[in-house]
Simulated assay, not measured.
Amino acid sequence: MKSEHSEPTHTDDTAGRPIDAGRPDPATETFVAHRNLLFTVAYEMLGSAADAEDVLQETWLRWAGVDLDAVRDRRAYLVRITTRQALTRLRTLGRRKESYVGTWLPEPLLTAPDVAEDVELADSVSMAMLLVMETLSPSERAVFVLREVFGLDYEEIAEAVDKSPAAVRQIAHRARAHVAARRPRGTVSPNETREALDAFRGAVETGDLQSLLDILAPDVVLLGDGGGVKQAILRPVVGADKVARLLVGGLGKVSAPTFRPAQVNAGPALVLRLEGALDTVMAVRIDDGLITGLYAVRNPQKLSHMRQETSLRR
């Protein structure tokens, strides 16, 4: 896919007159205007920023060949192309996950502060919610994302997923019930989040076992993703005592680790650097003032979107 800077900058308009060389052609202009939205759709369907970028490239290639005069709603048309490409990619991704070493976690994104201000969008891109959506079928996931997150009507979704509006309604109902039974418990105030993250950071930096036990929920779950490239736990670790001892024991073997708070997938996280190099991104789920979920991504192939903020849009 061509970037905003490498898109074609001039062409002939319908009357044969050259368009101003400083202004993109209409197809490029429309695509760039909706790019963040399309990336968000693809990322929520896939949980992989790299695959979402590939989907955007495929979307651009198809969009570039469209007769714009025949398109009534350009935004809806682009979302339809992106959804279809993401569905194809989602099935391929599913086969890759079957041979993945250890737990597969979504690719973490360093997100801008404004993403967290949109409560529904922030919830939908959280690590916890993306993992819930992993339990949906491809069609259920597409319908859920387009309906519950982006508010598309059933007719628009039906065109995007090649099903009837009646079938889409049934899928939406089934997906909504499935997610409701598994979704995170609720929202947490910024102050509560900051206090819990500060307490957790202080405890892991000092190796204070008791302080960790005080901030971890009794049923806390730790998931790790090394992808077979970096050492990581291969199965979920459940329970405050087990998680605390694993964290203290593991970090005790590391020389001079540094932790920095960050907003990852619109939620709290700690970024671990060793000798200045990015090593681990640990997203944190907080409920009722206690940490209930830790998602530690170490696979270096999944950390490229931690270099700069990613803009997500609805």
Rank of each mutant, 00 (worst) to 15 (best):
D153P: 02
V161P: 00
I157F: 01
H173A: 15
D162P: 04
F150A: 04
R174Q: 14
Q170D: 14
R174E: 14
R169D: 12
R174G: 04
E148R: 06
A160C: 07
A172G: 10
A175L: 06
A175S: 12
K163R: 15
E148A: 07
K163T: 08
A167C: 07
A175F: 02
V149R: 07
G151W: 03
R174C: 00
E155K: 10
R169N: 13
R147P: 00
E159P: 10
E155C: 02
I157C: 07
D162H: 10
A160P: 06
R147N: 06
R176N: 03
R147I: 02
Q170N: 12
I157S: 05
L152A: 04
P165G: 09
A172C: 08
E156D: 15
R176T: 00
R169V: 09
A166H: 12
V168P: 12
A160T: 01
Y154K: 05
A166E: 15
E148G: 02
R174P: 01
D153G: 07
A158D: 09
K163S: 13
I157L: 08
H173E: 15
A175T: 04
R174M: 06
A158T: 07
K163G: 09
Q170R: 14
L152E: 04
R174F: 01
G151F: 02
A166M: 13
R147L: 02
F150E: 05
K163A: 15
V161G: 01
G151S: 06
S164P: 09
A166I: 12
E148I: 00
A172P: 07
A172D: 14
A160Y: 01
A166S: 14
I157D: 03
A172M: 06
G151A: 04
E159K: 14
A175V: 00
L152G: 00
F150K: 00
Y154V: 09
L152S: 00
V161H: 00
A166D: 15
F150R: 02
E156H: 09
A167Q: 11
A167N: 12
E155M: 03
A158S: 14
H173T: 13
R147Q: 07
A172F: 04
